[in-house]
């Protein structure tokens, strides 16, 4: 299977990535190539194989419920693109 322009536009939207009209043909071709590479997996019969998400298969450690953080708003917002009154600013959120 390979990508066409519509697929690429759909995925780019899902991933919130703007692609210019110029970028789309090359992106489509390259993504199709990558898809061709990964499609080689499809030939393998993996029935009965348990998926492996983490190599070591260890289990989650739990953290004691204690407050360890203090207010660092000024330091953290010093690197933010737009803030006001301690809030991060974004174009209007419409619900």
């Amino acid at each position: 299977m390979s990508f066409d322009r519509t697929d690429v536009e759909k995925i780019a939207h899902l991933a919130r990535i703007a692609l210019t009209d110029d970028e789309i043909p090359a992106t489509t071709a390259k993504l199709s190539g990558i898809l061709g590479l990964i499609d080689k997996m499809q030939a393998v019969d993996t029935r009965g194989v348990t998926p492996l998400a983490h190599p070591l298969e260890t289990t989650q450690r739990l953290r004691p419920d204690t407050v360890t953080e203090s207010n660092q708003r000024d330091a953290y917002q010093a690197i933010a693109p737009a803030t006001e009154a301690g809030l991060y600013l974004v174009p209007k959120v419409i619900e």
């Binding site: 990535i17 692609l19 992106t27 990558i34 990964i38 174009p91 959120v93």
Partner: peptide, 23 residues
């Protein structure tokens, strides 16, 4: 909002990163 996301990411990431994100 959508424009903020799409252009910040479209302009901020290079082509290989964008490809891998999309894959």
């Amino acid at each position: 909002l959508t424009d903020l996301y799409k252009r910040s990411r479209g302009e901020g990431f290079g082509p290989e990163v964008k490809r891998r994100i999309m894959v």
